[in-house]
Amino acid sequence: MRCTDACVYPFPLGDSSVRRMAQEAGELGLDSIVAVGARGCIFRGVEVVGGTVIQGRDQGEVQAALRRMGKDPGVVMATAGDYALNRALLHMGRVRILRGIHATPGNSFDHILARMAAERQVAVDLDISVLVSGRDYTRQRALQRYADLVRLQSRFGFLLTLSSGARSILGMKSPRDMVALCGLFGLDEDDVEGAFLGIAKVLRPEKSVEVVE
């Protein structure tokens, strides 16, 4: 998993089947995708990892959603909110990725939460679809927030993931396109490669003690 799209929405959430999305990902140069609502499999050499996105206004709603989840939810992602919610999400062991930070208030993810995310190995997702479909103020705000996240990431070293947020194969992006779009908010090519590895690190977190035989 060297090059992963961290969030796509296959049919019925979008207009493309998970197989077609996996095939398209392979043609674009990706080797894995996280598909919301899909089961893990390998299709034409592309690894599909299942994923679940949780959206809640407060901690209680998120915990209720976590309790309702099935046995194999895949990678659990939660939509970020205000500061208190983000702090609570980072403390929940099952949430592996924070999504949608661009749409939250400016002070909802600061240096304290950045350090906490690094310690708990919770990744922060950069959704590229906002830069593609958004215009004017929406896109400017997303670029500002992403640039701020990149600054915090370089200081505290928490995990970043990159996602196209695609609901169709037309919304999926190649690594070349991702590098170009990430350049808009100051993420250089090496950092983009690191962010592509984010999902692999989320799935296999570093342990404090590891036995090497």
Binding site: D15, S16, R19
Partner: peptide, 10 residues
């Protein structure tokens, strides 16, 4: 209308 994008297996 927007098409659906599938594979033959689907």
């Amino acid at each position: 209308q927007q098409p659906l994008f599938l594979t033959e297996e689907d």
